[in-house]
Design a protein around this nucleic acid. Structure first.
Lengths: 346, 346
DNA sequence: GTGAAAGCGCTAACAG
DNA sequence: CTGTTAGCGCTTTCAC
C-alpha cells in the first residue's frame, strides 16, 4: 500500500506470487501470459482493489492522456459546448480534460498555458482570445499539438478550427441593409483578432454594396465583454441626438448581444420596432424573445473537430512523423432568421 | 532534454554547475542558497526554459494539485457556474480542475470517478446526480476528500454543500397556492434523491396548509432531463380533458422549466394567462419572458464553498488529522419574483 | 512465459 | 550551504 492509500503493482505481484513485470505485462495486454498466472493476478487485483497509478505510467511513457482546454470563461455557454464536444469525442479513449479560464487576461492566459505544459498535457485546445504568439511558440516547440479555435494566428504550427467569418458577416449584414438600414452600430469583438477583422470585413462588403459609409461613432469597443457592450450601447444612445441613433445594431458575439438587449430594454427601446438587432453567435436560450436573427455557431461541431485533430496529431507524435502539415478547418455557418429586423424606408 | 522535449532539473544542474538537489532546493524556496549559486541556477533556468515536471513531483509527493469535478453535463449553466466558482477560488493556489460529465448515467459516473482516482486527484467535487454509495465509499476510503453538491448521501464521510430545499420548496409553492391555485402539476427531479424529496416535502407542506391533495396524475417524472420534462408536459395536457388541466406547473430545475415553456408554447398556452409556472432554479437567461418566479440557485457560491472545503480538507490530509468532522453546509435561497403566476379564484 | 533491473524527473533524508 | 542517494509506481529492455 502506498501513501496514496491504495494498492500498487507491487502489492498485486506479491499477492499473486509473481513479479511486478508480469503484472505490468498482463495489464498492458500485449504479452502472452500463462493461464494460471493470469488468474492469480486477476484475483489479486480484485482482492486489493488495485488501480494503476496513471501518474507513474505517464512519467514513464511521456503521455498523460490529458488534454488542456483553455477558454475565456468556462461559465460561458459557447465554450462549454465546445468543451463538451471535445469531451464526448475523447472520453471513450480515456482522455481527461483540464479546463481553465483566462477571462481574456493575457497574464492569466500565460499562467494557464504554463501550468498546462508543466502538467505535460498531451495537447492543448485554445479557444481563449488573447494574442500571444510568443507564448504559443513555446508550446509548439515542446512538440505539444496545439489546436486553435476561432482564432487565426498567422504562421504558427498549429491546426485551426474556424468559421467562415467573412461570409457569415456578409450574409448577416446583407439582411440588415436589404431591409433599408443605413445607420448601423457595431458591437465589436477584440479588434486585434484576425477573426474579428474578417467578420468586420464581411460586414463592410455588404455595406459597400449599398454605398454605406461606416460611421466610426457607431463602433462600440465591446471586446467580447458583457459590461463593455452594455455600457457602450447605453452611452451611444445617450450621447447621440435621437435623429442620429442607429436603426440597427450588429453584435459580434451572443454574449454581447444579450448585453445589448439588456441595455436597449433599459433605454425603453423595443426590438425590432425601435432598433433592429442581429448577432454573430446565438443567445443563451431560444426562449428569448424576440428571436434574434443570428449566425449560429456550432460550438459542439468545432469541439468534435478539434478533438479529432488532437487525436490525429497525437498519433503523429506517437509515430514520430516529422513533416507535419497543419490544417485550417473552415466551417460554413447557418443563419437563423428571427424577428429582430424591421423593414424601414431606406 | 527529456523526451518531453524539455529541459529537466538535470539539465539545469549541469548548466549551473551544481547538483540537482541544489536546484530542487532553490525551487522549493525553503532552503538557504549561496548568492552566486542562486544566480547561476536562475540563469540556467532561463537559458534552458526549464519548467518543473509536475508529474514527477506528484509521484513523489503524493499530491497532484488537481481537483476532479464531476457534473451531470458540463454544457449546463448551473454546473459551469459551479465549476467556475471552484476555479476562481483554487486557481491562485495553482490547482487545476479536471471536469467530466456523467450525463446522469450510472455507468459513466462510475467510469469517471474511477478515472479520477487513478489520476490521484487531490479531491473530488461531485455534483452529478446518480446515487452510488458503493462507488463513493471507495473514494472515501482512499482518503480523497469528497464534497457533494446539492446531494445528500446519508452516512457518508464527505462534506455536503446543500441548499435549503425544504424551505425553498415551501416558499415557492406558497406563492402558488396563495394565488388560488389548486390543480398543480410537478415536473419532478430524480425521485430517489433526498434533495428532491425535501423539495417535494416543502411543496407538500404548502399544499397541506390549504388542504390541497396531490393528484398523482399531475406528477411528471422529469428526472432532470430536458426531453422527459418536455414530453411529460405535452402528454399531460394532451391526455387530460381541459377542465382538469393544471392551472400551475412547478418545475424542479431551470432546465426542465425551459422545456416546460417550450412545450406550453407549442400547446399554445400562455404564461401566466393560461398556466402559471414556477421554477426551482433559474433559467439560462434573464431575457426570457415572462420572467419566471423562481428559486435562485447560487451555483457560484456553492462552488466557492466547495473549494473552501476542499482546501480545508487537504490541509487536514497534510497534517494527518484523523478525527475529521464532516460538515453539511446549508445555504438559504432567494426567491426571484417574476410575472409567471396568475391570481385565480380559488 | 517470467524475472531482474534500469530509469522516467523529482524530492528528501542523510552526509559532509 | 551543497552533494549523494534512495525511492515514488510504473514500463521496458535484457536475460533466462
Amino acid at each position: 500500500m502506498s501513501r496514496f492509500n491504495k494498492a500498487t503493482i507491487k502489492d498485486v505481484a506479491e499477492k499473486a506470487g509473481v513479479s511486478i513485470s508480469t503484472v505490468s505485462r498482463m495489464l498492458s495486454g500485449n504479452y502472452p501470459i500463462g493461464d494460471q498466472t493470469r488468474q492469480n493476478i486477476l484475483n489479486a487485483i480484485s482482492e486489493t482493489n488495485y488501480q494503476p497509478n496513471v501518474l507513474a505510467r505517464s512519467l514513464k511513457s511521456g503521455r498523460t492522456k490529458m488534454i488542456g482546454v483553455v477558454v475565456a470563461n468556462m461559465a460561458n455557454r459557447f465554450f462549454m459546448q465546445l468543451a463538451r464536444g471535445i469531451e464526448t469525442f475523447v472520453e471513450p479513449l480515456e482522455y481527461n480534460l483540464i479546463i481553465s479560464s483566462t477571462y481574456n487576461d493575457r497574464k492569466k492566459e500565460e499562467r494557464v498555458l504554463s501550468m498546462l505544459t508543466e502538467r505535460a498535457v498531451d495537447a492543448i485546445v485554445l479557444a481563449s482570445s488573447i494574442d500571444d504568439p510568443k507564448c504559443l511558440e513555446k508550446i509548439v516547440t515542446r512538440n505539444t499539438p496545439l489546436i486553435l479555435i476561432e482564432r487565426r494566428v498567422p504562421g504558427i504550427q498549429a491546426d485551426m478550427v474556424l468559421e467562415d467569418n467573412y461570409a457569415s458577416g456578409y450574409k448577416l449584414m446583407k439582411l440588415v441593409t436589404d431591409n433599408g438600414h443605413r445607420r448601423i452600430a457595431f458591437v465589436n469583438g477584440i479588434e486585434s483578432h484576425p477573426t474579428t477583422k474578417e467578420n468586420f470585413a464581411g460586414f463592410k462588403s455588404a455595406l459597400d454594396e449599398k454605398n454605406i459609409e461606416i460611421d466610426r461613432r457607431y463602433i462600440i469597443k465591446g471586446d467580447l465583454d458583457k459590461t463593455k457592450a452594455y455600457e457602450g450601447i447605453k452611452k451611444l444612445f445617450k450621447t447621440l441626438p435621437k435623429e442620429e441613433w442607429p436603426t440597427a445594431v450588429a453584435s459580434m458575439s451572443g454574449l454581447m448581444t444579450e448585453s445589448t438587449m439588456h441595455a436597449l430594454r433599459e433605454l425603453n427601446l423595443r426590438i425590432p420596432e425601435d432598433v433592429s438587432v442581429v448577432s454573430y453567435g446565438e443567445l443563451s436560450s431560444d426562449l428569448i424573445s424576440p428571436r434574434i436573427t443570428s449566425i449560429k455557431q456550432d460550438a459542439n461541431r468545432m469541439g468534435k473537430k478539434a478533438a479529432e485533430l488532437v487525436l490525429e496529431r497525437l498519433e503523429e507524435v506517437e509515430k514520430d512523423v516529422t513533416n507535419r502539415h497543419y490544417r485550417e478547418i473552415l466551417f460554413g455557418t447557418e443563419i437563423v432568421i428571427g424577428e429582430s429586423i424591421k423593414r424601414i424606408n431606406g
